[in-house]
Design a protein around this nucleic acid. Structure first.
Length: 284
DNA sequence: GTCCAGGAGAGGC
DNA sequence: GCCTCTCATGGA
């Protein structure tokens, strides 16, 4: 039995397939199945909303999809004179920043370095299937992301078998720290934005880019602005007339130009470029 | 076969 | 501080 969740101006498919999360499976009927934390949900786009199965999964769907936030306020905060951003928003206005559990967000982005989205997805699904707890709903199956203990116990060589390559050590060491209680990701909640950045940088394999992904997609710090190869390309070609922009200069520009919801702006720009700039990956 | 990917760390200068 | 090299792997 499904339950209807009212959500005007929301695009489910784009939100689940915009490089934030990597485990949602599209079913033959167009629904999406996947775990939200420990629980399997089936989500389906409807007019002005989402159908959620099971029906009592609505609350977690609202939180996960950030449907409890005034989205228009986010859009209204964007700089009005920015035509590049305006085009990206117009391309997919219903995109949301998902609220991900801290550990699966950190672990997934630790495996993302120097990987294409399709490959991150493949590894992410394999890790869930091999090490996570399986869940079922009718004929649909999915697995939760394995706990730090499960990953710690699996070991680095097992993670290498699953395709993580040199990232296996990063993920395994982070799992050991969390499973032992030596570090607790919940401790990041009360830190301010810059303290949280320093906190996350303590993990081996986490640099500024991955830390910003975790700040944005995990801790919901909507001003955090991850800079990856796509973002660099966008700014070089669309904002700086082909000029190579030093990281520091770019960071300074981002903070003052996009404001408190900069992370949202970043996600719009990233999604637009990645899905519409064509497969030729060079010039638009 | 070649190029590249939601990077980070170590080493050299 | 900045520059360069290296780290696995599979999709395009």
């Amino acid at each position: 039995m499904a339950s209807f969740l009212s959500a005007p101006n929301f695009e489910l498919a784009a939100t689940l397939d915009s490089g934030q999360v990597f485990h949602w499976q599209e079913e033959p009927d167009g629904a999406f199945s996947g775990c939200v934390g420990d629980r399997l949900l089936i989500l389906r786009q409807a007019a002005d909303g989402v159908l959620v199965e099971p029906a009592d999964g609505v609350e977690s769907a609202i939180s996960y999809l950030r449907l409890d936030q005034d989205h228009q306020a986010v859009l209204d905060s964007f700089p009005k004179e920015d035509a590049v951003l305006a085009a990206a928003v117009a391309y997919c206005p219903g995109l949301r920043i998902i609220r991900q559990p801290y550990w699966e967000c950190l672990a997934t982005f630790l495996t993302s370095s120097l990987k294409q989205v399709a490959h991150i997805r493949q590894i992410s699904l394999r890790v869930r299937r091999e090490l996570g707890e399986p869940r079922e709903l009718g004929a649909i199956q999915s697995s939760a992301f394995p706990t730090p203990s499960a990953v710690a116990e699996a070991g680095e060589s097992r993670l290498r078998e699953l395709g993580l390559g040199y990232r296996a050590g990063f993920v395994h060491r982070a799992a050991l720290l969390l499973a032992s209680g030596a570090m607790r990701l919940e401790d990041g909640e009360q830190l301010d934005d810059s303290e949280l950045l320093e906190f996350l940088l303590q993990f081996d394999g986490v640099g500024e880019k991955i830390a910003n992904c975790v700040r944005l997609f995990g801790y919901g710090r909507l001003g955090a602005f991850p800079v990856d190869v796509w973002i660099e390309r966008i700014f070089r070609e669309r904002y700086f007339e082909g000029r190579e922009v030093p990281r520091k200069e770019l960071a300074a520009f981002l903070v003052h130009h996009f404001g408190r919801y900069g992370g949202y702006a970043q996600q719009y720009l990233f999604h637009h470029a990645r899905t519409s700039w064509g497969k030729s990956r060079s010039r638009p």
